[in-house]
Design a protein around this nucleic acid. Structure first.
Length: 266
DNA sequence: AAAGATCTCAACCGCGTCGCT
DNA sequence: GAGCGACGCGGTTGAGATCTT
């Protein structure tokens, strides 16, 4: 597919210059991929502008770099984000915010672009469902105290397994949930009051340490537990965690008065 | 089956930073 | 220190795929 896309936004001097130089934009062709891959395998990465010129690609250096890093690199992992990766992303984003490249460094084979897309398409969607702002304390608490623990629970149905593998305090709260027939948010939250105390007393580090410990385990396990325990057999969808009941609970509790509860628990 | 809505993700853009001259 | 080019990052876009009606 040979696409010479002339964008509406074209008009800047840079773009005009690019056009005059005959630079291509839009989707990469198989031939272009092959040229870039061959060139880099021979000459290595870096100096992207000269790569574009020397390889005979009518692409900008930026475009070559992006194509290589996000798609052609041999160690790029394709396919669904695993449960482990989802937990890591949630945790790391909690710590660092939209530092996608920094987060990606902790997910081998995943690109910042992929993680960014995951966040925008999955996580922000959930925030909208809950009628919360994605950056609000309510939603961040929902991620931290409900979503992540439930992912962990899916990953490790038997809590003892984790307890035996990491330091004891790593497991406080986050793995506890009420499974008496139906999920019960309030009980879940009450059982996690120790976590809340940690964060509200300014001891985010301790919670971070809990997750750091678990992150190490996740990274270790990624090679052996690729499929996790998704709700649909091999499915890795998060959406199953956000069933109607959970959404209802979170809307009721988190977006209305959970913040008050947190404060009182602290 | 078709049309419209929604989702996904590759690719682009603008901007900040870094290193060299 | 100023100017410049290269690079990397985060935000945004839009085409194609998928789902819903």
């Amino acid at each position: 597919m040979d696409v010479n896309v002339i964008k509406k936004s074209e008009g800047s001097q840079v773009q005009q210059l690019a056009n005059e130089m005959g630079l291509r934009k839009g989707p990469w062709t198989v031939d272009e991929d092959a040229i870039l891959t061959n060139y880099i395998s021979t000459h290595g990465e870096g100096h992207w502008n000269s790569v574009a010129r020397s390889a005979g690609l009518k692409r900008s250096g930026k475009s070559c770099r992006l194509r290589w890093l996000n798609y052609l690199r041999p160690d790029v992992r394709r396919g669904n984000i695993t449960l482990q990766e989802q937990i890591l992303i949630l945790d790391l984003h909690f710590r660092w915010g939209n530092r996608w490249s920094k987060i990606a460094q902790h997910l081998p084979g995943r690109t910042d672009n992929e993680i960014k897309n995951y966040w925008r398409t999955r996580v922000i969607k959930q925030a909208k469902q809950l009628k919360c702002d994605v950056n609000s304390k309510q939603f961040r608490d929902a991620l931290r105290y409900v979503w992540m623990p439930r992912l962990l629970e899916r990953l490790h149905p038997a809590p003892q397994k984790l307890t035996n593998q990491t330091e004891p305090e790593t497991q406080t709260g986050v793995l506890v949930s009420n499974r008496n027939g139906s999920d019960s948010g309030p009980l879940l939250c009450a059982k996690q009051s120790n976590c809340l105390s940690d964060s509200s007393s300014g001891q985010n580090v301790s919670v971070g340490n809990q997750w750091s410990s678990f992150n190490n385990q996740l990274l270790f396990e990624q090679g052996t537990n690729e499929n996790g325990h998704g709700c649909g057999g091999g499915g890795e969808s998060l959406e199953c965690l956000w069933n109607d009941e959970n959404v209802w609970f979170l809307q009721q509790q988190l977006c209305d008065d959970l913040e008050v509860k947190f404060n009182s628990l602290a």
